[in-house]
């Protein structure tokens, strides 16, 4: 079977869906335009992801900075993060969509994004070498100056790592928006399933995956841009090992 059909997958009946057919669907301009077209759904898909992650960043970064800087509530980060991660994602989202109708259901995506951002921020602050923070304090920086001028810039790589993780998780889950009728690329996939249009389903799946990779690449670029050069160099050369003492 596989040898006879190296590039395709199979429909229920055993009839293959060739890559060429999927490509044909993807390249058909008619499929891109219109209120249910690929373009609009892709933008909607992206909008939900960015909205969810941005809200998570706005909530979790300040909390992570506070906890990392003061050391207060570290147990909360670990416990809360683990608890949320242990929850079955789909279950949580379905529950929240049942409780909150309509767009409020997007809160579920934000909840999903928070642990990664929170623990990334917290870990970033805690990973700043103790002697660096000690020096900052000893030179006469106030608590606030230490946080903004020393801890945050050095925490950025790990903080951004948390944001990237959150984005990936959200992108993997955002299709549920289609379940509650909010659209997105999941909508195309679901429609395809309903009408047994396998080109449509496969095409939508490929688009979802491509978009996830693309967004991650963009975030990787952003990480490079915001990471101070010295921190980047240190991380790469590894000359200043962390907490050597």
């Amino acid at each position: 079977m596989a040898a006879a059909d190296p590039l395709g997958t199979r429909r229920e009946g055993g009839e293959p869906v060739l890559i060429t057919e999927i490509l044909a669907w993807l390249l058909d301009p008619g499929n891109w335009s219109g209120p249910d077209g690929i373009l609009r759904q892709t933008l909607l898909h992206l909008f939900y992801c960015v909205l969810a992650v941005t809200s998570a960043v706005l909530l979790a970064v300040p909390a992570g900075l506070y906890i990392g800087h003061t050391g207060r509530g570290a147990v909360f980060v670990v416990g809360f993060g683990n608890a949320l991660r242990a929850l079955p994602t789909l279950g949580l989202v379905t529950l929240l969509t049942l409780v909150f109708r309509g767009r409020v259901a997007l809160v579920a995506l934000t909840v999903l994004a928070i642990p990664a951002v929170l623990s990334g921020t917290y870990a970033g602050i805690r990973a700043v070498p103790a002697h660096v923070v000690d020096a900052a304090k000893g030179m006469g920086m106030t608590s606030r100056q230490r946080l903004w001028k020393v801890e945050l810039p050095n925490a950025l790589p790990l903080l951004m790592g948390g944001v990237r993780n959150a984005m990936l998780q959200v992108m993997a889950t955002v299709m549920v928006a289609a379940y509650v009728g909010l659209g997105g690329l999941g909508q195309i996939l679901l429609t395809g399933q309903r009408i047994n249009d396998y080109e449509r389903m496969a095409g939508a799946a490929i688009l979802i995956a491509l978009l996830a990779v693309l967004v991650d690449l963009v975030l990787a670029g952003v990480t490079r841009l915001v990471t101070p050069r010295g921190v980047f160099l240190t991380a790469r050369s590894g000359t200043t090992s962390r907490r050597r003492r």
């Binding site: 070498p129 002697h131 660096v132 000690d134 020096a135 900052a136 000893g138 030179m139 020393v150 810039p153 050095n154 101070p228 050069r229 010295g230 921190v231 240190t234 200043t240 050597r244 003492r245």
Partner: peptide, 11 residues
């Protein structure tokens, strides 16, 4: 104030 690991700011 000078310390053992120098404590320079990497960034």
């Amino acid at each position: 104030y000078v310390i053992q690991q120098a404590g320079l700011f990497p960034h």
